[in-house]
Each structure stands twice: as C-alpha cells, then as structure tokens.
Amino acid sequence: MCGKYQKRRQNIKTPNSGKRTGDFILLGLFHHTEAHLFLFSMVLTIAFGSLMGNALMILLIHQDVRLHTPMYFLLSQLSLMDMMLISTIVPKMAADYLSGKKSISPAGCGLQIFFFITLEGSECFLLASMSYDRYVAVCHPLRYPVLMSWQLCLRMTVGSWSLGAADGLMQAAATLSFPFCGAHEINHFFCEAPTLVRLACADTFVFEYVMYICCVLMLLVPFSLILISYSLILAAVLQMHSREARKKAFATCSSHLSVVGLFYGAAIFIYMRPKSYRSANHDKIVSVFYTIFTPLLNPIIYSMRNSEVKGALRKCMGQCAALHHK
C-alpha cells in the first residue's frame, strides 16, 4: 500500500522472452525444516481460530435480539471482512507449502490484490463509521435512534465496501497492466501490489506515486474522522460529573479503540518505517500479523470487554448445553 510505493527503481529491467505471460512464483514464508513446519502449524492454528472466533461473533450478533443494533451490525461487518481476508491469503499459502507448487496465475494474483486491498480499505472506513456510532452513543444518547438510524448505518456500510472495492479494482488492474520479466518470482507468501510492481519491465514511477497518494488518503481520511470523533467523546466525558457515567462511557469505547490501535498501529509500522529498516523478510513477518493474527484479536477484544457480547455467549452456551442434555 502506502510507503512501499515511495521507492523508485533506478534500473529498468528488460523483458525476458517466454516469461512475460507466464505464472508468477510465490517464494512463500516457510521452508521445509522442522522449525518452519512448527511455525506453519502455529499459523494455521491461529488462522483457524480467527475464522472460528469471527464466525462465532457473527452468529451471536445474528441470534441474540439484544445485539440487533447498528453498533453490532457494524461489528459483524468487521468480522466478515476479517474472515474474508484470512480466506483470501491462508488457503493458497497452505496449499503451496504442502504441495510444493508455488505458482499462481496472473488472474489469481489479480484477485488476491483486489480482495486484499478491498478488505483493508473497507476496514479503514468501517472503523471510522464505528467511531461515529460511539460518538453518537456517548454524546447524544437520547438522539441515538435518529442520528444513527438503520438507513444511515446501511449507507455507511455500503460506502465502506464500495470505496474499498474501487481502490482494490484500480490497483489490481493497474498493477497487472505492466509487462513483467525475469523469473516472475514474488518474494512474499501472497500477491501484494508493491511487491509485484518490482517485477515490472517498465517505468512505474507515475503509478507508484499515484498509488502512494491514494493509500495516504485511504488511511488518513478515516483516521482523521476517528480522531475527531474521539476528541469530541473525550471532551464530553471530561464534562461528566458522575464517576459511573465516565466509567460506562470509557467501557463503551475501549473495545473499538483497541481494535483501531491494532489496525493503524500495524499499518503505521509497515508503511511509515524508514526505508533503511525495511526488508522483504520483515515485511512478510509483519504481514502475518495483520492478515492472520489481528483478525484473531478482534473478536477476543470485543468478547472480553463487552458485557452484552459475554451475555450473548453465555446464553448461546446454555442453549447448546440444554440441547446436549436432551
């Protein structure tokens, strides 16, 4: 996404005949050693836990009437995005490692780029929508049904998906429009636009610059809206005289703030680091964090810090236990 587009290559490669339209080779993350086999098993376990945790969150929100509110609907969309992100990356990575076949077609590579950027971009705007929901809940609780209507909630959700999809389609189409040469080897475990652009046989400076601007906007605009929302929330909380009211307001926002911190913390670490501290191996390791590990933490954060979600979980477990006894 952002910082990886900054660097302009000085030497432009020349095409290698017979390789331009061939499949790409994903070098992957693990080697066939005992240590890497253990790490691979750990990654698969975390990915499975992420899928199950987010699926459970969606199920609880769908089944429990108390969770049929705009806030939890937006949370269910966040869980859906996390599940789709894992499904886009992990199955292909696991199949490549287990089979030893690491090739991916240009169409498959384009689809990975599209879904990855769509989901990451959509999550940026969805987190901004969730921050507005928290602002209304804390600062205007009596007007919440009006200011945060279901119609507005659906519009924000559709807008988040649409903006992310537009960015994903643009970057995937533009990236695959370049001629590629050399060994077609991608030093990553999935197709990422900045990594793929390094294999292009043409001058990509204009593309990288435009994409960098797009990425900055996709990150900074939602993040600015989140900062504004929480600045207003903080000002309202400081004016509250009741200690119990302050505690309730902080509890309402703490889960969302934790998720925002994880998402943007990873993004800043990846894309805002100085170039001298970047390497392909570091990028791959950090990519595991924000594509597999972060989706596991999101449902854990909301289930541990949210009494309504914990209540829905206890109710669901009670129903399951009753069915088992019957």
Rank of each mutant, 00 (worst) to 15 (best):
Y135G: 04
A266H: 11
R305T: 15
G22K: 14
G311R: 12
D82Q: 12
P145G: 05
S149R: 08
K101W: 06
S76Q: 06
S99G: 12
E244A: 15
L44R: 14
M240W: 09
E244W: 14
F40W: 09
L111Y: 06
E123Y: 00
L232R: 15
F73Y: 13
I104D: 03
A47Y: 00
A172Y: 05
F180R: 00
M52P: 01
F48W: 11
F223E: 06
M1T: 08
A55F: 12
L296W: 02
G28I: 04
K101P: 03
L119A: 02
T252S: 15
A236L: 06
A47R: 07
I292F: 11
Q171F: 12
C191G: 00
S41F: 12
S224F: 10
A174K: 13
S131W: 01
L196K: 05
Q63V: 08
L262Q: 00
S224A: 13
A251M: 12
F205A: 13
V146W: 07
R314P: 01
I89K: 07
L296C: 11
L126Q: 03
Y271W: 11
S129I: 00
K102N: 15
K102I: 05
H256D: 10
L257I: 14
L37A: 13
P194L: 07
F207L: 13
V216W: 14
A55E: 09
D64V: 01
L296Q: 02
S254Q: 07
P141T: 09
Q77N: 10
I285P: 01
D203E: 06
Q6S: 14
T291Q: 10
L126W: 00
L85K: 07
A95N: 13
T33W: 04
H282L: 15
V138W: 06
G53I: 06
L27C: 07
M84N: 10
K247A: 12
V221C: 08
S162V: 12
G22M: 11
K247R: 15
S177I: 10
A183G: 06
G18E: 00
D96G: 05
I104G: 02
H62V: 10
M148G: 00
F114Y: 14
R246S: 11
M211D: 04
S122P: 00
G159D: 01
R198Y: 09
V210R: 10
K101D: 13
L51T: 04
E244H: 15
H241N: 14
G100R: 04
Q6N: 12
S162Y: 08
F125E: 00
F125M: 07
L67P: 02
C215D: 08
L232W: 05
K92E: 06
E308P: 04
L56I: 08
A193V: 05
S224R: 10
C139W: 02
P194F: 04
T294F: 12
S160E: 05
V146N: 06
D23N: 14
H324T: 02
L51W: 11
G121N: 01
A200T: 00
I25Q: 03
Q151P: 00
F48R: 11
I285T: 13
V288L: 10
C139V: 15
T45F: 12
K7W: 11
G164L: 03
A193R: 06
